[in-house]
């Protein structure tokens, strides 16, 4: 009855043991996120009130950048971009959320994840490539027009898709719709399937089931998905650049152009506005729905 294994040397325990130095390794990811994400993102607020110099900026306290932003056409364009992003959210919800509900309610449990994974494929191909690829699809002689002409639905190619707000909205939806499916499904996953059987059993109509059961239970997921689409629709500059017409901008493209024009305080001011908007939206969402519920299935 030998029993006790040879005790490891105490220095090794001090380094590698549960209470050894090695446990600080677990703090590294969080430290990295704070230093390379939270700090720079937070500092945008500080830099936005710096004074612009010819090539750079210098410490100061001025609202000049904000003034520039709000008194130029940029503010108006920004407002339009917000409207377009909001429309993209609504369209993505209408197109994508029924999928999440359908898969959770009607598809056998064993293949639910597989069906949802179908949406990973388009999501993982660069949004850049997908946005880029929309150009030949939506162009005057593109796929959509050719197809409609062949069918005889239209006589003339529609030229009012590409390089218009419609093009931008289509780009947003095509880029971000999978996220609505994912977060919607994740939220629905927290809902036990028997809940639906109870609804059926009680004879609740489709509308009631949706309004009184599905919507409240999936609200955190819907909200998370909506915020993601809204903020990205507003912030991904490539989409208006590639699909929008002349002058089509959003926060992202204004920021990028300001950087190119070496107006760093302006870029930081718009970034700061975006960050504050994002934090406010997430905070409201968390206050309303407790967004941690979205993560329940994995913890």
């Amino acid at each position: 009855m030998g029993g006790v294994p040879v005790a490891a040397g105490s220095w090794r325990r001090r380094v590698f043991g549960e209470e050894g130095l090695v446990r600080y390794v677990f703090l590294l990811p969080a430290a990295f996120m704070v230093l390379c994400f939270a700090v720079p993102v937070g500092l945008t607020l500080v830099w936005s009130v710096f004074k612009r110099t010819q090539f750079w900026m210098e410490p100061g306290l001025t609202l000049f950048a904000y003034e520039t932003f709000f008194t130029s056409a940029r503010a108006e364009n920004f407002a339009y971009a917000m409207v377009h992003a909001a429309i993209a959210v609504v369209v993505s919800f209408l197109l994508g959320f029924p999928i999440a509900v359908f898969v959770r309610r009607r598809v056998p449990v064993s293949i639910q994840h597989r069906v949802i994974l179908l949406f990973i494929l388009p999501f993982m191909i660069s949004e850049l490539i997908r946005v880029f690829a929309l150009r030949p699809v939506l162009a005057r002689h593109g796929l959509v027009n050719e197809f409609l002409l062949q069918l005889g639905v239209i006589d003339e190619p529609i030229s009012a898709i590409l390089f218009t707000p419609l093009g931008v909205i289509i780009g947003d939806v095509m880029s971000f719709l999978p996220f609505m499916v994912f977060s919607g499904f994740l939220a629905m996953e927290a809902v036990q399937r028997y809940v639906f059987e109870v609804c059926d059993d009680l004879g609740a109509g489709a509308l009631h089931t949706f309004k009184d059961v599905i919507l409240p239970l999936a609200a955190p997921g819907i909200f998370a998905g909506s915020v993601f689409i809204f903020v990205n629709g507003l912030g991904v500059g490539l989409i208006p650049n590639i699909l929008g017409g002349p002058g089509a901008v959003n926060a992202g493209s204004i920021v990028f152009e300001s950087i190119v024009a070496l107006d760093f305080p302006l870029a930081m001011a718009i970034s700061a506005i975006m960050i504050v908007t994002l934090v406010a939206l997430l905070w409201i969402g968390h206050w309303l729905f407790d967004l941690t519920r979205v993560l329940e299935p994995i913890s």
Binding site: G3, V4, P5, A7, G17, E18
Partner: peptide
């Protein structure tokens, strides 16, 4: 003060 793997 010993972890599981060092106990009999």
């Amino acid at each position: 003060d010993l972890p599981a793997n060092e106990r009999p």
